[in-house]
């Protein structure tokens, strides 16, 4: 039963990874941008949340209502100000721009907030759990995080397959040169894509922040797991990203069950095994790729 418990905890953790990876997957799927600043941006969201919570005394969950649109706005401006220019240059420029952004953003957060750990308190919710049996108890906060991860992925998927903007995003992913002939400005499609992606980063950053302590580097440390989730699931596939997050979470939880220090290691081994034996991922090429 301990193993079953580990699997359940792993699945829930996978929801968090998927939430963090959703925006990564979206930006890669639409623009082929590997956003190395994703984790740093998640921390920007967490600190914005912290400022709001400390300034107004509202709960972190209420603060998300402000953090998500703020981050979406950041994404929109970031795309017009940085990534659209980098895409025009082409080659490695978008990757380098993202890398530079990650460094600068992390440094700025350290300057403003120091490297000390911070936390966002959710009161009794942080310890609330549902006892299923003697060995199995499900934390309410991880459950909420998981639910939000699944809902975000599902909502993105529906948006991309049904909404006119989602259609334009897929068209831009297929053949950006032909998109202007439809009367569509690629750069605007990209800006809206990044706005949506960073909206999800806003959620991911806040859920990372309420889960435990965080500091300016924490997001980038978690980013590696998000990347692994995306690649395990198959590049550009949102359902794949969710599956990849869960596979990674379960691998880590099972590893930890054997020995608490094995969690990350086993996760990485599973990731490497997938790269070796199924390099296109579990669910390659769904809608966005």
């Amino acid at each position: 039963m301990q193993w079953l418990n580990a699997i359940i905890q792993g699945v829930l953790l996978g929801g968090l990874y998927a939430l963090l990876a959703a925006g990564l997957s979206l930006m890669f799927g639409v623009m082929r941008i590997v956003n190395l600043a994703h984790g740093a941006l998640a921390m920007l969201a967490a600190y914005i949340g912290l400022v709001i919570v400390q300034g107004t005394g509202v709960s972190p969950f209420l603060a998300m209502v402000a953090v998500v649109p703020i981050m979406a706005g950041v994404g929109y401006l970031l795309q017009w100000g940085v990534f659209n220019r980098a895409l025009r240059v082409g080659g490695l420029a978008p990757l380098l721009a993202a890398f530079g952004l990650a460094v600068v953003l992390t440094q700025l957060l350290q300057l403003k907030f120091t490297s000390d750990s911070q936390s966002l308190q959710t009161g009794s919710l942080s310890i609330a759990s549902i006892q299923i049996s003697d060995d199995i108890s499900i934390g309410v906060l991880p459950l909420i995080t998981f639910g939000v991860g699944v809902v975000v992925i599902a909502a993105l998927q529906v948006f991309i397959s049904k909404a006119p903007l989602g259609r334009a995003m897929r068209a831009a992913s297929d053949d950006p040169e032909t998109v202007p002939l439809m009367g569509i400005d690629n750069r605007q499609v990209y800006a809206l894509s990044t706005a949506i992606a960073l909206g999800t980063v806003g959620l991911a950053g806040m859920f990372l922040a309420v889960r435990g302590n965080f500091d300016p580097n924490y997001g980038q440390a978690m980013l590696i797991f998000a990347f692994e989730a995306v690649i395990i699931g198959g590049l550009g596939s949102l359902w794949g990203t969710l599956a990849g997050g869960m596979v990674l979470g379960v691998a880590q939880a099972l590893g930890s069950q054997v020995n608490p220090s094995y969690g990350v290691l086993v996760g990485n081994l599973v990731f490497l095994a997938i790269l070796a034996f199924r390099p296109s991922g579990l669910l390659p090429k769904a809608v966005t790729a």
Binding site: R167, R170, S173, D174, D175, T178, L181, V287
Partner: peptide, 10 residues
């Protein structure tokens, strides 16, 4: 355009 350039995944 020449080559039709239909969006392949649509």
């Amino acid at each position: 355009p020449e080559g039709r350039r239909i969006f392949k995944s649509l």
